[in-house]
């Protein structure tokens, strides 16, 4: 009896370890290269970000949905949503390529990920964004001019690794998700 109890409690202890380790944390690192540069590091559990989002002003974020027209009047979320609905079912391929003399922008699908890459040859700026299709789906699940930020963060919980890397020569930004144990 005692051995069974011991075995059960040991099993429960070991079962609890991976569960505790699976808390996803979002990390944001901003590093400036110049003298007197700023270095910013933010590490937060995604669950904390999700709750903090509810404290955002209702005018901008209402029930986890961000109203983009309050931030950028030129950005039409409905157009973006329509475009996404056309592109989301496309197989692995280059979805958008804009090649200019000094800059190349490419958006492509690779498995269940959308990769956005910007390469500015003149200034040496590079941007790499990697977002799972499910996150973009969740983001566009709002209505009208709304983006469903809460849904997107919820989907981010299953993502691990780099999401955004920006290097414009002066500033480096890195956003990634991992598990902090």
């Amino acid at each position: 009896m005692n051995r069974t109890l011991l075995a059960v409690s040991l099993a429960l202890t070991f079962a609890a370890i991976p569960l505790q380790a699976q808390t996803p944390w979002i990390h944001i690192e901003v590093d400036e290269n110049e003298a007197d540069a700023s270095h910013v590091k933010v590490n937060l559990p995604l669950s904390v970000v999700q709750i903090a989002l509810e404290a955002a002003p209702e005018k901008i974020v209402d029930h986890g949905k961000i109203r983009m027209n309050h931030i950028d009047e030129d950005l039409d979320v409905e157009d973006l949503r329509r475009m996404w609905n056309e592109l989301r079912s496309a197989p692995d391929s280059e979805l958008v390529t804009i090649q200019e003399k000094e800059e190349t922008v490419s958006i492509r699908r690779q498995g269940d990920q959308i990769l956005v890459e910007v390469d500015n040859r003149k200034d040496g700026d590079t941007v790499h964004v990697r977002v799972p299709v499910t996150v973009v789906d969740a983001l566009f699940s709002g209505e009208g001019q709304e983006l469903n930020l809460k849904g997107a963060i919820s989907e981010l919980k299953s993502l691990r690794g780099d999401i955004v890397r920006v290097d414009d020569g002066e500033t480096k930004v890195r956003i990634w998700i991992d598990e902090k144990d």
């Binding site: 007197d36 910013v40 590091k41 933010v42």
Partner: peptide, 8 residues
């Protein structure tokens, strides 16, 4: 560490 800012 939740937040760390260093501006010189």
């Amino acid at each position: 560490i939740l937040v760390e800012v260093d501006d010189g």
